[in-house]
Design a protein around this nucleic acid. Structure first.
Lengths: 222, 222
DNA sequence: ATGTCAAACGAACGTTCGTTAGTAATCTGC
DNA sequence: GCAGATTACTAACGAACGTTCGTTTGACAT
């Protein structure tokens, strides 16, 4: 057995709305857990089948190949990310600072709520062939671009002061990505608090000008 | 072929001082490249041997198993990280702000100079058995603790103002980790500039009080 | 009872995996 | 130029891989 797990989370694997009914859903969820824990190559079809309470042959009655399982998970993961970010931005104002808060809270929230989905969708995307991965890859590019556009608008409006826009995007995105690997519901802070703190860090990275209604919330979550 | 590479870098794989002489070194370097590009499970002994210009059986005259190859790479990676951070801290002052700059510059510098080593040492560590991975895992824990201690000292001295110490450590560490995946020498900024910008972002995350000699360097690298 | 159909099955396919035994080639020190 | 050690080789091992084949099962409609 390994000395260190690939990710800390162990439960809440797949949302009901992402999970197909019947065996399809059971198999997909088992694949998600095993891909997250052992990686795509390290998880065998036989293990996935056994974890689903099904024989390996049955798996191929529901999915044409192991790779299609991964493709489905990557697609679901990135679509949930986009859905979550879009909903958050629709509920935020036009101020780039509010939008950054909304984006980072949604971004981090996705990685705390569905850590396995996030780990697989981001960390195993490279295992997909060009044909099966192209659509998902485009989704990821768009999500990055959304944040980049927000940051750029903030710089143009003078509310952000940042040495380098794209490096700020990679920094903010990167620190959020890592959350999926260490967060568990047993952590001393709940997901909401982690998201709030990371949103504050993002604003600090961006050198955000103080927002009258927000600044006093800075130190209240330690 | 995949639509997206696992990491962007393709060269400068292993430092001479990390590379054993003769075939041992050639094999280790080939293993590093293949582990970084395809993952530990995804890279086969036959591929590593072929990339080394050697037959599979020869590999076992130099390393007792495939896992020992990974263990060696994880160890080298984390020891280079510790060496780099230690050297940087010895050349920095006692002010926690200087120490954070030193740490982040070394941290990011390691991930730009040896992206493959960083990707393997961090991203494949979980594939090691408890026996082979314990020492390296302890190295990683110590490196994290070094940063945590610096941040805590800064908070105690009143030069940092941060909502949550450990979340700041994960954020700073996480954004640096991700650099190994996207940085290439062809990037618009060189490694030094990336490290400088990330060091600035780290200070911002920590809400660092202005340092007289430093503050005017904030916007000069965009 | 009989026919239909989706779902699951046992068994096996050819391939690749990490690894090893035994042997030939090459270098080192005298 | 020979002995001993090192290095690399050919060939093969058992196990596991993703996948497919032909069949059986169980529920429901005729």
């Amino acid at each position: 057995m390994s000395v260190v797990r690939r990710l800390a989370a162990t439960s809440t694997v797949l949302l009901p709305e992402h999970k197909p009914p019947g065996s399809r859903g059971v198999i997909l969820e088992a694949a998600l857990r095993l891909f997250a824990e052992r990686g795509y190559v390290g998880a065998s079809v036989r293990e996935i089948a056994e974890a689903s309470g099904v024989k390996p042959a049955t798996l191929y009655a529901h999915y044409p190949s192991k790779e299609h399982l991964l493709a489905e998970l990557c697609r679901v993961g990135h679509e949930e990310h986009r859905r979550s970010v879009r909903a958050a931005l629709l509920n935020s104002g036009t101020d780039p600072r509010d939008q950054v808060i909304a984006y980072v809270r949604a971004h981090v929230g996705m990685h705390t709520a569905f850590p396995m989905l996030a780990v697989v969708a981001n960390g195993e995307l490279h295992a997909l062939s060009a044909e099966l991965g192209a659509a998902t890859f485009e989704l990821r590019r768009q999500s990055e671009q959304v944040l980049a556009d927000i940051v750029q608008r903030g710089v143009d409006r003078g509310v952000f002061d940042v040495p380098h826009v794209w490096l700020a995007v990679t920094a903010i995105g990167g620190m959020g990505l890592r959350v999926a690997y260490w967060y568990t519901p047993e952590y001393e802070l709940d997901a909401e608090q982690v998201a709030d703190v990371y949103a504050e860090y993002a604003l600090r990275i961006l050198g955000a000008a103080p927002l009258n209604l927000r600044r006093e919330t800075r130190g209240d979550s330690s």
